[in-house]
């Protein structure tokens, strides 16, 4: 791939230390390395427990790294101060997780618009963008003013996706974005991913849906080679 990588990981290691269980040390990542260029989508693959989610969480700064470099848009997440990671998450690095975590009673349309409001976008404009995405993702309009906490799993997933795609992040982490979606909504999500790639977003994702992976991903990285005790 040409150009400078948007996401670049090298020499990344991590152990979990369980202080209340006899100080057990569980090595989970050894010398992980990968890069994602702008406009590229890279899939993490490997058996359950191999460390796909752990690696994604480390890129987002949700899990700490013991050593190594995680460069996202010029910031080393492994070394950055909390407020640098917060700034990175606000403007540069988006994350669509599998779980929707929101303040109860906040209307769905506000949940989706929040990342835009946090960036200082005018309220009307942010809400218009939120409504557009909710419409595309087939969330019925009568639900937009309700809190998503009572929605079905598939609806919550789509609200989460709308929120994750509201701002045009230059780097995006996707954790099974098409899980629990029907064919029509899966198609919408894949189109959103293709649009993000076309505008130059670097995407790192976990896709158990193989057909989806084949369609949107340019490369696959098998994390098994970073799993301590599993690598050859």
């Amino acid at each position: 791939m040409g150009g400078v990588a948007m996401i670049e990981i090298s020499g990344l290691c991590k152990n979990f230390v369980l202080h209340n269980q006899g100080g057990a040390v569980i090595p989970v990542m050894r010398d992980a390395a990968l890069s994602v260029a702008p406009g590229e989508c890279v899939a993490l693959v490997g058996a359950s427990g191999a460390g796909k989610s752990t690696l994604m969480r480390m890129v987002y700064g949700n899990y700490l790294a013991d050593s190594g470099v995680i460069r996202v848009g010029g910031v080393d997440v492994a070394q950055a101060a909390p407020r640098e990671v917060l700034a990175l998450r606000r403007a540069t690095l988006g994350y669509v997780s599998q779980f929707l975590r929101v303040v109860p009673r906040v209307p769905t349309v506000d949940v989706v618009a929040e990342p835009l409001l946090a960036l200082g976008m005018a309220r009307d404009e942010a809400l218009a963008r939120a409504r557009d995405l909710l419409g595309r993702l087939n969330i019925p309009e009568r639900l937009w003013t309700l809190s998503p906490t009572t929605f079905s799993g598939g609806e919550q997933q789509r609200v989460n996706i709308a929120r994750g795609f509201a701002h045009a992040y230059p780097a995006l982490l996707l954790d099974e974005p098409t899980a629990s979606l029907d064919a029509a909504n899966r198609e919408v999500v894949l189109t959103l991913i293709e649009e993000a790639k076309a505008r130059g977003a670097a995407i790192l994702g976990i896709f158990h849906d193989e057909a989806a992976r084949d369609r949107v991903c340019d490369r696959v990285v098998d994390v098994t080679r970073f799993t301590p005790g599993l690598a050859a």
């Binding site: 979990f16 969480r57 700064g61 949700n62 899990y63 700490l64 909390p82 990671v85 917060l86």
Partner: peptide, 9 residues
């Protein structure tokens, strides 16, 4: 640290 990092890791 970051709130979600301290709570999750």
């Amino acid at each position: 640290g970051l709130t979600d990092q301290v709570l999750d890791d």
